[in-house]
Design a protein around this nucleic acid. Sequence first.
DNA 1: AGCATATCCTATTAATCAAGTAGGATTCAA
DNA 2: TTGAATCCTACTTGATTAATAGGATATGCT
Lengths: 151, 151
Amino acid sequence: MQVSARGEYAVRIAVTLVAGHPNTVSASALAAEQQLPRKFAEVILGDLRRAHLVESVRGVEGGYRLARAPGRISVGEVLRAVDGPLSEVRGRRPEETSYEGAAVNLPRLWVAARAAVRSVLDEVSLAQAASGDFPVQVAELTSVDDAWLPR
Amino acid sequence: MQVSARGEYAVRIAVTLVAGHPNTVSASALAAEQQLPRKFAEVILGDLRRAHLVESVRGVEGGYRLARAPGRISVGEVLRAVDGPLSEVRGRRPEETSYEGAAVNLPRLWVAARAAVRSVLDEVSLAQAASGDFPVQVAELTSVDDAWLPR
DNA sequence: AGCATATCCTATTAATCAAGTAGGATTCAA
DNA sequence: TTGAATCCTACTTGATTAATAGGATATGCT
């Protein structure tokens, strides 16, 4: 699960919009609060707008706001809007892979891995990401000490 | 969870080595069986050797074999050997991230996502990947129809 | 000894992508 | 009309990816 700079920035921007919801917040304000390059933040907000996750208002007093309630947008949706699919194998989606010989069972493995990623990123809403009040299954994953250790 | 061509090839090579275990298999034989570029397969096998996941024998009748029993090497180890860490956020490990303001809770989210990935890739051995006989928790993830649909 | 078949090592390449930056056109409220 | 904001197109720079090239080195067989 690789999250690019775009992806990380998008989620940080999104949770910052939760705080201001339902008011609009300007790109410069968002960039300042999360210490991101303003122009890059604008690009990312454009992606989020085209994915219908945020709405924009132009002109003075304009800015961006979430297009839905913070409890009804998942982190996964935000990540997909700026990077592509959450899981890819050699540029293809897990269920599109196909192998011969000893590797015939790998598509099931890729699908399982994707399902695991989804079980976290698609199950946590922006409201939960902002508050830290994650679903129990997700919280349990982080309560094991081992989860915090590198491998 | 992005798996590069190197990563995919490495796993395909590894499960092909399971079939031949404990005999050695040459790089050309592996490349032919999985239809990969031979030279690229050699590069990957070099990575696996330096990670002590395979052993090599030089000369005529030489080749590669798994360094441990197929049940004692995980798919996650193979992927780490050729790509880096399974999960990274903007080039950093999940537990190394740190944010201010509305984003303070994101490190826990990244750690949870990594734990989810590990619960599949580190729990499936090469023997299981080759046979398709996955652990129940992993098999259950793929038995839900939804897991096979793109999003 | 000589030869065939391997691994192994160093270097190079072409293409793509990531992470921004630049500059300005457009919109809108006061 | 002006200032602050979004929005659009284009560009740059550096790194990464997926290989390929060419040969040096090792090993077993006859």
